[in-house]
């Protein structure tokens, strides 16, 4: 691999981290006014804003690393679907509150392990983002844990619905822990970590929560989502991007909002 190819792989890696945070922030923002309580609107909004903060720093850095000089806004608002590097889990449609807690539990279990390791990244910006993110994600994980336990170890109906939500989310979990070419290159250069290294720790955390919640870990699904890191997305991604990007694209020269 030439130096330029390596730079490009590392940019790709950082963009993947940034896109996960950006797209999940967009989905979490949809809960404002739709959560079970106004208090939960705020909680999910706060989590989304934490992720958006992470995304801003990571996208800005990805734009520096890939040599195109694109800033965070250009990367967020002026890329097409095939150029987004996020995993399928974060782009899936909102579902019910149980789906969201199942997704948040898995995503924050993954992100918690990820950022705990990235604080030692050879890339100063990545390490800096990780240092801040590790505290934020610990809270996200805690929030998901409390809800999953309450819904699982709640009423018969809430338990059934939480279990069903876990089953629906399961096909999107494996992709979080699958090594893409950029992950391997980033890990070898000391900038990133292989997602496969996070699988055991994250799964152990989720298993512990599910036990506490009297829920079952779903069986390994027959099919897994794949290809998000290469720009292959679900149908819903197009609608998400349309909503997220249309203002910026309609007024590309606007300088004041």
């Amino acid at each position: 691999m030439t130096a330029t190819e390596l730079d490009s792989q590392i940019a790709h890696y950082v963009l993947g981290l940034g896109d996960d945070a950006l797209i999940y922030a967009q989905r979490l923002g949809e809960w404002i006014s739709r959560a079970p309580q106004i208090e939960e609107d705020m909680a999910l909004g706060n989590i989304g804003l934490d992720l958006l903060g992470q995304a801003r720093a990571l996208l800005t850095h990805a734009g520096e690393l890939d040599g195109t000089g694109r800033d965070e806004d250009q990367l967020a608002y002026f890329r097409d679907e095939r150029e987004f590097r996020n995993v399928h889990l974060v782009e899936q449609a909102r579902g019910d509150f149980g789906d969201e807690m199942a997704r948040l539990l898995w995503f924050s279990a993954y992100a918690g392990e990820l950022y705990a390791r990235l604080v030692d990244s050879a890339d100063e910006v990545v390490a800096g983002v990780a240092l801040k993110a590790v505290k934020e994600v610990a809270y996200h994980r805690d929030h998901a844990r409390h809800w999953v336990v309450r819904l699982g170890d709640g009423t018969e109906v809430s338990r059934e619905r939480m279990q069903a939500a876990l089953e629906r989310v399961m096909p999107f979990v494996d992709e979080l822990f699958t090594d893409a070419a950029a992950d391997v290159a980033a890990a070898e250069s000391g900038v990133g970590v292989r997602p496969s290294e996070l699988r055991v720790a994250a799964t152990t955390f989720v298993t512990t929560v599910l036990e506490e919640a009297t829920l079952q870990m779903p069986e390994e699904p027959k099919r897994h989502a794949r290809g998000g890191r290469d720009g292959i997305h679900s149908q819903v991604m197009g609608y998400l991007l349309a909503e997220m990007q249309h203002i910026s694209r309609s007024h590309p020269d606007a300088s004041a909002w």
């Binding site: 208090e39 939960e40 706060n46 409390h146 309450r150």
Partner: peptide, 20 residues
């Protein structure tokens, strides 16, 4: 004040609402 199902969640909601 705020609404919450129990004390633990009340504490978390309080964190999100009053210490932002």
């Amino acid at each position: 004040s705020l609404h919450a199902p129990d004390a633990e969640m009340a504490l978390r909601n309080a964190r999100d609402l009053y210490t932002r």
